[in-house]
Simulated scan of single mutants.
Amino acid sequence: MEQINPCTTCGACCAQFRVSFYWAEALERGLPEEFYGPLTPTMAHMLGTNCRKPRCAALSGEVGQETRCAVYDARPSPCRSVEPGDEKCLRARSSYGLAGL
């Protein structure tokens, strides 16, 4: 029986946190330029996440319903560090009124 990834029906973390990372990581991972921008001389951020109400430019769909990351395989390390059910996940889900995992 195939297990469904809970992230594909959530997306809350992608619409909750700023995603900043060392600029060279984008090149190393092959992250398309239209999804990130400069933050400082050495740091970059995922577009859409560096604002008062963040939502990553790579996120499509409706949070809590059905979502998809357009750059999943090339996503930077901060995105990779959030695990389903961890503290950041639960905080993001809570902010959207979603139950914990």
Rank of each mutant, 00 (worst) to 15 (best):
L59K: 02
A24P: 09
P38R: 15
G11M: 02
A57I: 10
S95T: 10
L98H: 01
R52H: 13
A99I: 03
S60P: 00
T8W: 03
Q3K: 11
T9S: 13
S81V: 04
A44W: 14
G100W: 00
S60M: 11
C14S: 05
F17K: 05
Y36W: 15
R93P: 11
V71D: 01
G30L: 04
A70E: 06
L101F: 05
G85L: 03
G11D: 04
E87L: 10
R29A: 10
F21I: 05
A58K: 02
A44Y: 13
C79F: 00
T67E: 11
T42V: 15
S60D: 09
T49P: 06
C51V: 07
G37E: 09
E25W: 04
L31D: 01
E62T: 14
G85Y: 00
T49N: 06
E34L: 04
N50L: 03
L90C: 05
A12Q: 08
G37T: 05
R93V: 04
L101R: 09
G100S: 14
Y36H: 14
L90R: 15
K53A: 11
M1F: 09
G64F: 07
C79M: 07
A57T: 07
R80N: 08
R68I: 01
G48V: 00
V82T: 12
Y22M: 08
L59W: 03
R91D: 10
Y72P: 06
P54Q: 11
K53Y: 13
C10S: 07
V82I: 15
R29N: 08
P32M: 05
T40Y: 07
E62L: 09
T67F: 07
M1K: 12
A24K: 15
R93I: 02
C14V: 07
Q16Y: 11
A12G: 11
C7E: 04
T42W: 03
T9G: 08
A70K: 03
R93L: 06
I4V: 14
E62P: 00
E34D: 15
S95P: 07
N50K: 03
F17P: 01
L47H: 01
P32Y: 08
M43I: 12
A57K: 04
V82W: 05
S20I: 07
P76G: 03
T9E: 09
L27Q: 13
A24D: 13
G64S: 08
S60K: 08
K53L: 14
A99F: 08
H45M: 04
R55L: 02
